[in-house]
Nucleic acid binder design. Structure first.
Lengths: 157, 157
DNA sequence: CTAATACCGAGCAAAATAATAGGAATTAAT
DNA sequence: ATTAATTCCTATTATTTTGCTCGGTATTAG
């Protein structure tokens, strides 16, 4: 019941992108370096985000990535679902709603529970907009000591 | 971000146990057969539940398992946490709360998000008591056709 | 005694995750 | 036009986790 590194790295990458949204386009190499993530791996994550229409890629020299829409129109849920797939705790929470599947054998009284968890998770992540995290991130950057720089994240694993 | 079979099978096993709570002790083999789960595997799951103090084992012939307390004093959260470990989406949601870990590098603005998800999940699962599921299960059993029996669950994977 | 059961731990195959690697296509800058 | 920087695409490999099997020991009702 853990998020994979896809979700964690990916969300951080998008935040990084959003924080540097004033620049034209941010190269993958920059994000990778700032966040301490392998660039090759990050590439695969950002590909998912691109497919989901969250970021746009700009090819060629001086290319990079940009958010495809304003940060307050992107929720954490959008990002995590793009990276991790749906956030349901089991696959039948939504699916097979009206069918004979589980109910017959009586084995899916649990369905009700899964649905509740599912709804809770989705409400939680949809309620947080990327813009909020960007604001918070900038606040921390300013308040923090001047000597701090990128630093492999020792946490979050 | 999926629950493993540990959580799904395990919860079903506990429900089965609770439904048959009138009998003295329910043998693992019976639960396994009714729920269509490998007995050897189920044994490992129930061991976790035992360690967590949710079920009691009774050894010897005619032995089996019983709930260690009434079904309305056991929440789905108790059961799932026993089986899956904590239900936090990432490991640092609670940990390292007051330490320098993430905050310094500014890489953990996300912590706020993880905490929100975490709280949502835990609230959701703690809000459902085993007794509710048992009641629902019995209701379905009665309402259903008389010919139904155990049936490998085709769903929930 | 014996059969039924819980209890314990080692091992293993398959799947998922995390990462690496190499190259092709595109484009700004010179 | 050439070059260097970059996205884009796909294959492969290593590592970890999951789901499960197996063999044995301990305990107890009948």
């Amino acid at each position: 019941m853990k998020l994979s590194t896809k979700g964690r790295y990916g969300l951080q990458a998008v935040i990084d992108l959003a924080v540097h949204a004033d620049e034209d386009a941010v190269a993958l190499s920059q994000i990778a370096e700032r966040q301490g993530i392998s660039m090759n791996y990050l590439e695969q994550l950002i590909a998912k985000l691109k497919r989901a229409g969250i970021v746009n890629g700009i090819r060629g020299a001086q290319g990079g990535y940009m958010l495809s829409r304003p940060a307050d129109e992107i929720s954490v849920g959008d990002i995590l679902r793009a990276l991790e797939g749906d956030l349901n705790p089991v696959d039948c929470a939504e699916v097979n709603e009206g069918e004979g599947c589980c109910r017959i054998s009586g084995s899916c009284v649990t369905k009700y529970v899964w649905k509740r968890i599912s709804d809770s998770i989705n409400d939680a992540v949809d309620g947080v907009k990327l813009s909020e995290l960007v604001a918070e991130s900038k606040r921390i950057q300013n308040g923090a000591s001047a000597t701090e720089t990128k630093e492999k994240h020792t946490c979050g694993k």
